[in-house]
Write a protein that binds this DNA or RNA. Structure first.
Lengths: 189, 189
DNA sequence: CTTACCATGTAAGGCGTTACATGATTCA
DNA sequence: TGAATCATGTAACGCCTTACATGGTAAG
């Protein structure tokens, strides 16, 4: 009851910025939203069709030659639905970090094994942080040219702050676990 | 294929620390794991029964008077299965933050509305941070008495670092959004 | 005596990923 | 000419939450 599906609002939100094809929506999700949300084609395309039937979006054939291409545009009714959801309180923020699970149960496998997971997490975090800083560099200069740029930038700043915190934490964890297991050196590729 | 369910390992992991009833497992998940994982009775009880049939845990009736109570204990085979999973690389760490979604699409609702979500997030973060510091205060003095305490503490430190980062970020976001909407004052209850 | 908590479980159904299916276009 | 990318979609199925069902015990 409390938990309604969010995919409708993800699509409506993206389409409130500009018109997109299903494929472009997927690309947006995989770049801009990927640090806090995800979705697959198997949920995007059917939802788009459903929302067209419900009058929240309109579809337009923009095929070039033989390559079929359908652009979706939000309607006023769709915008209203989005705004309505936007005023509702947040239902749930959740994280599911398998890395933390493996750390929590790490005593069964030992410090050495656990350090490996932390180092993998650290490496991934560093890469993502670089990407986020790239977004930041693009968005910061244009943040006053459009509201959407500012809001986008603020979510990027969230990613940066949290990823920096992750890295700081990784260092502490490694230090602590290497006390457990004094032979362990920094592993290099 | 890549994504196998984790509930088995959550239960096995908890039972590797000590024997529990299904009810106690749920309490553990809702206190120690809740910052990075969740599970409901509807998945806990059936999984426990399945794992008993598979020989990963044994059950023991520990009912007191009329109150039925079943304690589960991990077997050597269960421990092996846990250790095996522990050596496998992490498949996925994910976050699903509705707050970030509402911020990303915030331009449709406006700064004032969006600030409300940030303030709600900030308040919840402060409460959770207090709870995490409580855990830290308990665990820090005993971290050398058991490996499990140390690993538990490290996950608590993760919560503390990230929640502090959240709070820092909330301040920046509020500052930035209030520029957008200069009439907005700090809201007080 | 009733509310809150202890305790175990099942059934229905939602949600959404994974895998599959199909075909055009671009580039090396 | 084969691989990568563009592009749309469906079907199967897995996973897990929600809601329901049942009953004991402790405290006020």
């Amino acid at each position: 009851m409390a938990n309604t599906k969010k995919i409708d609002f993800v699509l409506l939100g993206l389409l409130s910025h500009e018109s997109y094809t299903g494929y472009e929506i997927k690309m947006q999700i995989d770049s801009a939203l990927k640090y806090f949300w995800g979705a697959s084609y198997g949920s995007i395309y059917p939802t788009l069709n459903q929302m067209e039937q419900d009058g929240y979006v309109t579809k337009e054939n923009v095929s070039t030659n033989q390559r079929e291409k359908i652009a979706y545009t939000i309607t006023e009714s769709g915008r209203e639905r989005l705004r309505e959801w936007l005023t509702l309180p947040v239902e749930k923020d959740e994280i599911r970090y398998e890395t933390l699970l493996k750390l929590f149960f790490g005593s069964e496998a030992g410090a050495e094994e656990t350090i490996r997971h932390i180092e993998a997490f650290e490496k991934k975090t560093e890469q993502q942080l670089m990407e986020l800083r790239g977004f930041e560099a693009v968005l910061k200069p244009i943040k006053d040219t459009s509201k959407t740029h500012l809001y986008y930038l603020l979510t990027v700043e969230f990613g940066i702050e949290t990823h920096e915190a992750y890295l700081k934490w990784c260092k502490e964890v490694k230090k602590e676990l290497k006390k457990e297991n004094p032979l362990q050196q920094d592993s290099h590729l």
